[in-house]
Design a protein around this nucleic acid. Structure first.
Lengths: 302, 302
DNA sequence: GGAGGTCATAGGCGAACTCTATGACCTGCC
DNA sequence: GGCAGGTCATAGAGTTCGCCTATGACCTCC
């Protein structure tokens, strides 16, 4: 979806971008090379191929150092944005893989794991490099079970009041939106969807037990609950894909469909139903939260 | 800064991530390979090395296709986030390089160009693939000059009312924040900075003529204007670097320092001064905005 | 004028990737 | 039951690409 047409041929490689940022910050190809652990000629060649591939001069090389051109400066900032995401991915993967001692076991709902956890991990690495996070991803119901069963030190859930037997604290909020493919009749509506309309329409929904689903059901309960779903899936990506393909209207987190909406592949349908939900951290009562967990919680709340 | 410790060794390559997304969407290695224009064995090998490099199994391969594992599903969404940024970079670079016929000449201030324009370009490519954007990046003052001189069809500026002789429309807002390095005395303050304190302190500032600088000066004018800057630079990146290094407090766009604040490399100091500013599109009066420009404006406002 | 910094070039080596060709396996249809 | 069409994996060959070391040219500052 993200890559309808392969950008392949002109896709820069991440290490080149990392090098560019290093050059920008050190002011010298040689020093940047040192920082990445490669030789100066390699760095020189790499920057040259990057420039050739992008078709833009990025550096003013002089015998007393290298400075960014105006274009280079802008590109460097874009490169930073790419690297932020790439680092988040790497941290996230490390957490998925981790089977460490000295570990912090985190269980997070899908939405939280996909959109917030990676950023937290990057920040946590800066703030407390010693902490190794072991990340488990499921739905909100299961997150709570794991925290209760002491299979996780800290959980992150969506869309429900925290259970009484657990501590909890809000760490953010999210909004559910109704989206349809561009051609759908709902895109031509003049007035917001009424809840009864929504309740009567077969929709694309996440599976029962997911935070997204529960929030939605709770909101529609006064209007006769949602109709039988048109399709029910355990992950957001295929759901989103089905919505883009025009199968039916979908109800998804705003976080999840932000890109698609921006790109015009999905259209948000205004609705009278207020579908905000709070994202919360949860942990066991009666016992102090371990030190690493406190760190993560602090990061998540900021 | 973004890459204090080189992630190099385990940094995946973007084409592998693109392949992962393609596999997720097609459900088959072979089809995914076709989409990227490589052979099926190459795709197979690439996915294998990606899995090996990340240390996580991403695919359940079967003789009837390949499905994502639970971990793979999450990683794929993270990969999408990386690719969104990478695409934005590629589009932005294309715009910087462009010397096309059938072009739309855009001039944007640094903050807007760095943080908003790339996303708009990606969306624009989906909505109106025929439009070729030629991007010029300067400060707000110069943007206005270029629009007046008909060197740009559309301009984007920050932090000032639009000049009378141009049309304008708000496309977003930004906030200026005061940031210091973690050790700075201001991090231990109990009460927000008063404007007179800020006005009396030498700061790290953008150059005169930049939107950031003008907003700040206007806000401090009633209090005797800002003191002589500690350092004055024409780009945000080195300014940010200087702030991280602890040279002096800096005043920068919240967009620009969001990552550093999240990672604990900079600390925001609460201030009584309200430093919001509006980001606006501007274009010449008396003449219809050309069709491609309307497209971009529509994208930018959504 | 030397010392220490910058970057570029040349040559050789090695690894990594690609492709084509093939085989094994499953599913579904006839 | 067996064939057709899809899946993925393996093998081997060729080539490209990128790396490193060694060197040279140049600038700046002392």
């Amino acid at each position: 979806m993200t890559s309808r047409l392969p950008v392949s041929s002109r896709l820069p490689d991440l290490e080149a971008l990392e090098l560019l940022v290093a050059v920008a910050e050190t002011g010298s190809l040689g020093q940047a090379a040192g920082r990445l652990g490669i030789s100066q000629p390699s760095a020189s060649a790499r920057m040259r191929t990057l420039e050739r591939r992008l078709g833009v001069r990025l550096l003013d090389r002089s015998t007393s150092g290298s400075r960014l051109t105006a274009a280079g400066s802008v590109v460097t900032d874009w490169a930073r944005a790419v690297l932020v995401q790439a680092n988040a991915l790497v941290e996230g993967v490390a957490a998925l893989r981790s089977r460490q001692e000295d570990r912090l076991r985190v269980s997070a709902s899908l939405t939280v794991a996909e959109h917030l956890v990676p950023g937290w991990l990057v920040a946590l690495r800066e703030a407390a490099p010693g902490v190794h996070v072991e990340l488990n991803v499921t739905n909100s119901t299961h997150v709570i079970e794991r925290v209760r069963a002491d299979e996780a030190d800290l959980g992150f859930i969506e869309g429900r009041g925290a259970p009484r037997d657990l501590h909890s604290r809000a760490v953010g909020r999210d909004r559910l939106v109704v989206v349809v493919a561009p051609g759908h009749p709902w895109t031509r509506r003049r007035r917001p969807l009424r809840p009864v309309e929504l309740a009567a329409t077969p929709l694309l929904l996440r599976e029962a037990g997911s935070g997204t689903r529960e929030t939605f059901e709770a909101a529609l309960a006064p209007y006769g609950g949602p109709a039988e779903p048109a399709l029910e899936l355990g992950a957001t990506a295929p759901l989103r894909a089905a919505a883009v393909a025009g199968s039916a209207p979908a109800v998804l987190s705003a976080l999840v469909v932000a890109d698609e909406i921006a790109a015009g592949r999905l259209v948000e349908v205004p609705s009278e139903l207020r579908l905000e939900r709070v994202l919360r951290a949860v942990w066991p009562r009666g016992r102090e939260l371990p030190e690493p967990a406190l760190h993560l919680l602090r990061v998540a709340r900021s």
